[in-house]
Amino acid sequence: MEDNDLLGASWRTSSLSGGNGQCVEVAFIGQRVAVRHGKNPDAAVLIFTSGEWRAFTDGVHLNEFEFPTD
């Protein structure tokens, strides 16, 4: 994905973030998802396909990323 593709991106954060810039920001661009750190929006951006993003969010909903309890 070209940097130009990100210029018009509509970035958003979780409604639970509190708006302090400390959260991950996400932008949906066509069939891809861009992810960046809200505190440093000019740093590197991670790009995922819609399938990769869906697999990640499914894992979040299934608690696959919880810290071990032991």
Rank of each mutant, 00 (worst) to 15 (best):
Asp3Ala: 15
Asp5Cys: 08
Asp5Asn: 14
Leu6Gln: 08
Leu7Asp: 14
Gly8Trp: 10
Gly8Gln: 14
Gly8Ala: 15
Ala9Ser: 14
Trp11Asn: 08
Trp11Ile: 06
Trp11Phe: 10
Arg12Met: 10
Arg12Leu: 10
Thr13His: 04
Thr13Arg: 02
Ser15Gln: 14
Ser15Ala: 12
Leu16Asn: 01
Leu16Ala: 03
Ser17Cys: 06
Ser17Ile: 03
Ser17Asp: 07
Gly18Arg: 03
Gly19Ala: 04
Glu25Val: 04
Val26Met: 09
Ala27Ile: 05
Ala27Phe: 09
Phe28Glu: 05
Ile29Val: 13
Ile29Trp: 05
Ile29Pro: 04
Gly30Pro: 06
Gly30Arg: 02
Gly30Glu: 04
Gln31Asp: 12
Arg32Thr: 08
Ala34Ile: 06
Val35Asn: 06
Val35Thr: 07
Val35Tyr: 01
Arg36Asn: 06
His37Ser: 12
His37Ala: 14
His37Phe: 14
His37Leu: 09
Lys39Phe: 15
Asn40Gln: 13
Pro41Asp: 11
Asp42Met: 12
Asp42Pro: 01
Asp42Cys: 06
Ala43Tyr: 11
Ala44Cys: 04
Ala44Thr: 05
Ala44Pro: 01
Val45Ser: 13
Phe48Trp: 14
Phe48His: 15
Phe48Ser: 11
Thr49Phe: 13
Ser50Pro: 02
Gly51Tyr: 04
Gly51Gln: 05
Gly51Phe: 02
Glu52Leu: 05
Trp53Val: 09
Arg54Ser: 13
Ala55His: 10
Thr57Glu: 10
Asp58Ile: 04
Asp58Lys: 13
Asp58Gln: 13
Gly59Asp: 13
Val60Ala: 11
Val60Ile: 14
His61Ser: 13
His61Phe: 04
Leu62Ser: 09
Asn63Pro: 01
Asn63Val: 02
Glu64His: 10
Glu64Met: 07
Phe65Glu: 02
Phe65Lys: 03
Phe67Leu: 02
Thr69Trp: 00
Thr69His: 00
Thr69Ala: 01
Asp70Asn: 00
